[in-house]
Measured scan of single mutants.
Amino acid sequence: EVTIKANLIFANGSTQTAEFKGTFEKATSEAYAYADTLKKDNGEYTVDVADKGYTLNAKFAG
């Protein structure tokens, strides 16, 4: 089991951190699915991958 950390950075400057656990593939998929649920209210996002894929920095356009 691994933990994927998602740093969510919103256009207004606020941030949120979420963690997803499971296999690498499952946890990564859940992190992206969570970011997708936030698109409606926060706009499209881009992701910078860090820490060999164990940290995802998602920046929302607003």
Rank of each mutant, 00 (worst) to 15 (best):
Q16S: 11
S29M: 14
K5I: 14
E19Q: 10
V49N: 04
K39Y: 06
E19S: 11
T37P: 00
Y54D: 02
G62W: 07
E44L: 09
E25I: 10
F20K: 00
F24G: 01
E25V: 09
K39W: 04
E44V: 09
E44G: 08
A31R: 01
I4S: 00
L8E: 00
G22Y: 04
E25H: 09
A6Q: 04
A50T: 13
E19H: 13
Y34M: 06
T23F: 06
F60I: 02
S14N: 12
G22F: 04
Y32T: 05
Y54H: 10
F10Y: 06
L56M: 07
T46A: 08
A61C: 12
Y45V: 05
T17H: 11
Y54Q: 06
T23Y: 06
T3Q: 05
L8W: 12
L56H: 02
S29D: 09
G43P: 02
Y34T: 01
N57V: 12
K39A: 12
Y34R: 05
V2L: 06
G43H: 02
G22N: 05
T15V: 14
T46H: 10
Y32A: 02
A35S: 04
A6W: 07
T28V: 12
A27S: 06
D51E: 08
T23M: 06
T46D: 07
G13Q: 05
F60T: 01
A58Y: 15
S14I: 13
N7V: 15
G22E: 01
A11Q: 09
E30A: 14
A18Y: 14
K26L: 10
F20Y: 06
K52L: 12
D41R: 10
T23H: 06
G53T: 02
N7G: 02
D48V: 14
G43T: 01
A27W: 05
T3A: 05
N7Q: 08
F20M: 00
A11R: 09
Q16V: 14
D36M: 06
Q16R: 13
K52A: 14
A27V: 03
K59E: 07
L38S: 04
A27L: 01
D48T: 15
S29E: 14
L38V: 04
Y32I: 11
D36K: 05
G62I: 06
D48C: 15
A11H: 09
A35T: 07
S29R: 14
A61N: 12
K59F: 15
S14V: 14
N12A: 05
S29K: 14
I4F: 03
N7R: 10
N57A: 04
D41M: 13
E1F: 14
I9G: 03
A58C: 15
L56V: 08
L56N: 02
L8H: 02
Y32F: 11
D48M: 12
K26R: 12
F60L: 00
K5C: 11
Y32N: 02
F20Q: 00
L38Y: 15
N7E: 04
V2I: 10
A58R: 02
K59Q: 11
V49D: 04
Q16G: 08
A27Y: 02
L8S: 02
E30Y: 08
K5L: 11
Y34P: 01
V2S: 05
F20H: 00
D36R: 04
N42G: 06
Y32W: 08
T55Y: 04
A35E: 01
Y32D: 00
D41H: 12
A50V: 13
K21R: 14
K39Q: 07
A18M: 15
L38N: 05
E44H: 10
G13A: 05
A31T: 02
F10K: 02
K26W: 11
V47L: 09
N57E: 06
A58T: 09
S14L: 13
E25Y: 09
T55K: 04
T55V: 10
G22M: 02
G22I: 03
S14E: 13
K5S: 07
E19R: 09
V49T: 09
A27H: 02
N42H: 15
T46W: 09
K5V: 14
N12G: 07
Y34F: 12
K59T: 14
G22L: 03
Q16D: 08
S14H: 13
A61W: 14
K59V: 14
K40M: 11
E30W: 07
A11S: 10
K59N: 09
Y54A: 05
N12L: 05
Y32M: 09
K59S: 11
L8M: 13
F60N: 03
N12W: 07
V49C: 08
N12D: 15
E30G: 05
K5G: 04
E1D: 11
S29F: 13
V2M: 05
S29P: 02
K21H: 14
G62S: 08
K40Y: 10
T23P: 10
T55L: 07
E25S: 10
D41E: 14
A58D: 02
A18S: 08
E44K: 08
T23L: 08
L38M: 12
T17L: 09
D51A: 03
T3Y: 06
Y45L: 04
F60D: 00
G13Y: 05
E44Y: 09
K26V: 12
T37W: 11
Y34W: 15
G53E: 04
T15W: 11
L8V: 08
V49Y: 09
A27N: 01
N12K: 04
T3I: 13
A11M: 09
S29A: 15
N57G: 03
A33C: 08
F24A: 05
